[in-house]
């Protein structure tokens, strides 16, 4: 399967900060169904950046930045896209059997430097940074970022083709399929970092509807040598998973370069 990702730079602007700061607003994609039977359905998806899961209360995520990858690797069509102030929404038609992946992939560069005692920064792709002469600035440091926000929807039998690794960034490995999750059952999720098992990755998992709880009940797990976590969910519901990884990566055009990878997912846990 040949999955090619659209350039989602437009979306990178503004969102990278939300995704990389500690005061993290949460990015999420929430489909109307995760598990479907039969063969002809519509799924509607909400896309937002918010504090409460899964209630829009901050800014919308643009439907333009989202791709539907169908079970056979084809791209699906986004319909009825709307971007409101605090929530983006769109529909996609489901007519193939297997697992669909809804993906928002953001990548780009972020440069910081100091000029005349003033902190400066710039986002963009590599060409834009070069054109702006960023690499000639004194004391400039550059970060390259690749983050994925995704969820999965399955018609009839779950399939795994849509999770094929590209070898770049953090990627999910469906050891337990994300559309086959039930409360009080141990499940295993795997993660790759640049195509290799992501050992020692911190993964945060929290159930939605935290608005109605005093204790959010955030679970933090660390991946083992195989890049896997084992987890169980004591309650059914819709969950949010988030992980990221940063590393120094030498220099780019003479400037120190760091890499930041992120992965955020939404999935559903059913009661027995």
């Amino acid at each position: 399967m040949n999955i090619r990702y659209q350039n989602a730079l437009s979306c990178f602007l503004g969102l990278a900060l939300a995704a990389s700061t500690a005061s993290a607003h949460r990015l999420w994609l929430l489909p109307s169904s995760h598990v479907l039977s039969g063969t002809d359905h519509w799924v509607t998806v909400d896309a937002a950046v918010s504090n409460d899961l899964f209630f829009p209360n901050h800014v919308a995520l643009s439907p333009e930045s989202i791709q539907i990858i169908e079970p056979d690797g084809e791209f699906g069509t986004i319909e009825n896209a709307m971007k409101g102030h605090i929530r983006g929404t769109f529909d996609f038609h489901v007519s193939k059997e297997g697992t669909y992946r809804v993906l928002n992939q953001r990548e780009g560069y972020f440069a910081r430097w100091t000029e005349d005692g003033e902190g400066k920064r710039m986002r963009g792709d590599l060409a834009e940074l070069k054109e702006a002469g960023v690499f000639a600035k004194e004391g400039v440091a550059v970060m390259k970022s690749l983050s994925r926000l995704e969820t999965a929807v399955t018609v009839n039998n779950p399939t795994v083709d849509v999770f094929a690794s590209t070898g770049e960034g953090i990627e999910f490995v469906p050891v337990t399929h994300p559309n086959d999750l039930f409360a009080n059952e141990a499940v295993t999720f795997g993660f790759l970092l640049n195509g290799e098992p992501a050992k020692g990755l911190e993964v945060e998992v929290v159930r939605g509807d935290d608005r109605y709880r005093d204790e959010p009940g955030l679970q933090t797990l660390v991946t083992d040598a195989e890049g896997q976590i084992e987890i169980s969910f004591d309650q059914p519901g819709r969950y949010w998973l988030d992980t990221s990884s940063s590393q120094d990566a030498g220099t780019l055009e003479g400037a120190p370069l760091s890499l930041r990878y992120g992965l955020t997912m939404t999935f559903e846990v059913l009661p027995e």
């Binding site: 479907l36 039977s37 039969g38 063969t39 059913l270 009661p271 027995e272």
Partner: peptide, 11 residues
Amino acid sequence: DEGETWLKDLR
């Protein structure tokens, strides 16, 4: 085959 839509509810 619309009846199949709700088969998933037999979880």
